[in-house]
Computed example of a mutant assay.
Amino acid sequence: MSVRIIRTQDWADPVPPARREVRTATPELPDDTKPPVLFVPGFGHGAWAYAEHWMEHAAGRGFAVHAVSPRGHGGSEPAPRATLRAYAHDVVQVAAALPHQAVLVGHGAGALVVAHALARYPARAGVLAAPVFGGWATLGLALRRNLFGTLPAAFGGRLRLTRRQLFSRDLPDPAARGYLGRIGHASARAQWELLRARPPEQPVGDPPVLVVGTPDDRVVPRTALDNVARRYGGAPLLFPGMGHDLMLDARWQEPLDAILDWLEKGDH
């Protein structure tokens, strides 16, 4: 495994600073044996997506948890020209400011952002939930299942995902509509970079990486889940019957408990 030491672009074209939203939930009884967890949302989502369920539940299990909204997302500063590199920069900056080495958890396209961040930050572990690593195969699936919501994104417009793509039928319609109404969009440049699918570099320090998802995902093909997991030396942990937005769907607790169990049982 090779790790890049010098990145010319970082000093020739540094990422500009931006105000970032970070939400935090802490356990009533801090447990120093458990690493802090930093949640990273996917495109269009913000820290709010984790604050709905996952943050308080993880804190209840003794983990200090944080969620960052990368620039242009949630309550962070608008950034209409942001790049994937800028999103990864935001994650690294927040993680580096935590008092202990953190676990990075990314969802959707946020999993790709975490994968890029892992090449720059020596995380305790990484978790890639329903990872969207891009490429034309993912675009083809999205076009087949949501032509009019996906096609504008290929030309710099806004990506609009449907209830059926994001959630299972078990999630009540009022909740689904509420979540859909809160979803924004990433920058056109970042969306285009996602389609180009530049593979992330190898993680610094070879941390363990867990891939979780659902075989019923209508955004991420099952083959893509297998490929991402294989890249990190494992197989995906699957939760049938769930939608793409694992942290918001009706059975949100199941994948989160599995992630926390994995962190507790492993040497992370």
Score class of each variant (00 low, 15 high):
9 Q>W: 12
10 D>M: 09
12 A>N: 13
14 P>Y: 05
16 P>H: 10
19 R>E: 12
20 R>W: 04
20 R>Q: 11
22 V>I: 02
22 V>C: 00
26 T>M: 11
28 E>D: 14
30 P>R: 07
32 D>T: 15
32 D>G: 12
39 F>L: 09
40 V>G: 06
41 P>N: 07
42 G>N: 02
42 G>C: 02
44 G>N: 05
45 H>Q: 13
48 W>N: 07
48 W>H: 09
50 Y>R: 07
53 H>Y: 13
54 W>H: 13
55 M>R: 09
55 M>S: 10
56 E>M: 11
56 E>W: 07
57 H>L: 14
59 A>P: 10
62 G>R: 06
62 G>I: 00
64 A>C: 08
67 A>M: 01
70 P>D: 03
73 H>F: 12
73 H>M: 15
75 G>S: 00
77 E>M: 07
78 P>W: 13
79 A>P: 02
82 A>F: 03
83 T>Y: 12
84 L>T: 12
86 A>F: 05
88 A>C: 02
88 A>K: 02
88 A>R: 04
88 A>V: 06
91 V>N: 11
92 V>Y: 05
92 V>A: 05
93 Q>I: 01
93 Q>V: 14
93 Q>Y: 00
95 A>H: 04
96 A>I: 05
97 A>I: 03
98 L>C: 01
99 P>M: 07
101 Q>V: 09
101 Q>F: 08
102 A>I: 04
102 A>D: 00
106 G>S: 10
107 H>A: 15
108 G>S: 15
108 G>N: 12
108 G>A: 15
110 G>H: 03
110 G>R: 04
111 A>V: 11
112 L>R: 15
113 V>E: 00
114 V>H: 06
116 H>Q: 14
118 L>K: 08
118 L>S: 07
119 A>R: 06
120 R>W: 09
122 P>G: 07
